[in-house]
């Protein structure tokens, strides 16, 4: 029982990180119908930005943790958002109106470029970060197993909840969100009621990157090591989460992220850790066979 609860906590934490990245995939898919394969690498870059930020601040002798984390979080959100904007501007916008596969190929190219850029600029070796946030609560202690809930896990889950709630409200209630949804449903018509579609698409990339940067910082703090390749697997997992939940659907991305996190954690805990990725992707295959639109995706009804 204790073991189970511990895995549940770990799974939800991991799921939060995946969910935040998955939102970027699902939003971009929703608005321009392409998979932004460079999104995982945007996440990786954000982790590097966070690492550099932390080291600089610590180096400058600023050690009051809440301040350091908030400064790094905001800095990383802005810089990563800028990366997201630039990637869209360079790699996708010129190809708009081109055939469907063009931006997809461009995305894969951009992904490779970002990986190699970071590999050269930062070196290929893994970058460790000593534990920054330590401590936590002991929830249960049965003698041979203790259930820990670390402060960091609380921060991750709470911050994710806050961001996702805020983001859902942004999309459903504000003028900005309406604009976003209008572009998603009919880009041509959106332009005809005066919406600047290109700017809205840029904004989608910016928001997606900003959310991924939060995930980047969390990942860095949680695992304590990053390298130039973390974006690949995390990106694929988050993409899987988005598809699992129903690509194009925001609650779907959040749910999908959570599920992938849980499946992966429980599989590693009860079966073999080597096959955790296989487990996550097998579930994806099963869902796609029995529910091709994903868990919360709306099937497209073709009117005759």
């Amino acid at each position: 029982m204790e073991y189970f609860i511990q895995q549940l906590i770990n799974g939800v934490t991991l799921g939060s990180i995946y969910g935040l990245i998955a939102i970027g995939y699902t939003m971009v898919y929703g608005i321009i119908g392409m998979i932004n394969f460079a999104h995982g690498d945007i996440f990786m870059i954000s982790a590097f930005i966070a690492l550099i930020g932390l080291l600089v601040l610590f180096g400058a002798g600023i050690t009051w943790l809440p301040l350091v984390l908030i400064v790094v979080l905001i800095l990383s959100m802005f810089l990563t958002a800028a990366w997201g904007w630039v990637v869209e501007r360079i790699a996708y916008r010129p190809l708009r109106g081109s055939f469907r596969l063009a931006p997809l190929i461009s995305a894969i190219g951009m992904s490779l470029f970002l990986q190699n850029f970071v590999q050269i600029a930062q070196g290929a070796r893994i970058k460790p970060l000593p534990p920054v946030v330590s401590g936590g609560f002991i929830l249960m202690d049965s003698g041979d197993f203790t259930v820990n809930l670390s402060y960091l896990q609380i921060v991750i889950v709470v911050l994710t909840l806050v961001l996702m709630t805020g983001f859902s409200l942004l999309i459903s209630k504000t003028a900005l969100g309406r604009q976003q949804r209008a572009c998603e449903q009919d880009r041509t018509m959106a332009a005809l009621v005066g919406i600047n579609v290109d700017r809205t698409i840029s904004l989608t990339f910016v928001i997606g990157a900003a959310l991924a940067s939060v995930a980047g910082l969390m990942f860095l703090l949680y695992y304590g090591v990053i390298d130039f390749f973390i974006g690949f697997l995390a990106g694929i997992k988050a993409f899987t989460a988005a598809v699992l939940g129903g690509i194009g659907s925001l609650p779907g991305a959040m749910l999908g992220g959570l599920l992938i996190g849980l499946i992966e954690t429980f599989w590693s805990a009860y079966f073999t850790i080597e096959y955790k990725d296989v487990a996550a992707f097998s579930i994806l295959v099963l869902v796609l066979i029995f529910r091709p639109t994903g868990l919360l995706g709306q099937p497209e009804v073709e009117k005759v």
């Binding site: 003028a175 900005l176 309406r178 604009q179 949804r181 209008a182 449903q185 009919d186 041509t188 018509m189 959106a190 009621v193 005066g194 919406i195």
Partner: peptide, 22 residues
């Protein structure tokens, strides 16, 4: 007809006024 199908009738009219709202 090209409405925003997944929005409510009211939202369709609000999105048309988004410039001044933004």
């Amino acid at each position: 007809i090209r409405l925003f199908p997944a929005m409510s009738v009211l939202e369709n009219l609000l999105v048309a006024q988004h410039n001044k709202l933004m």
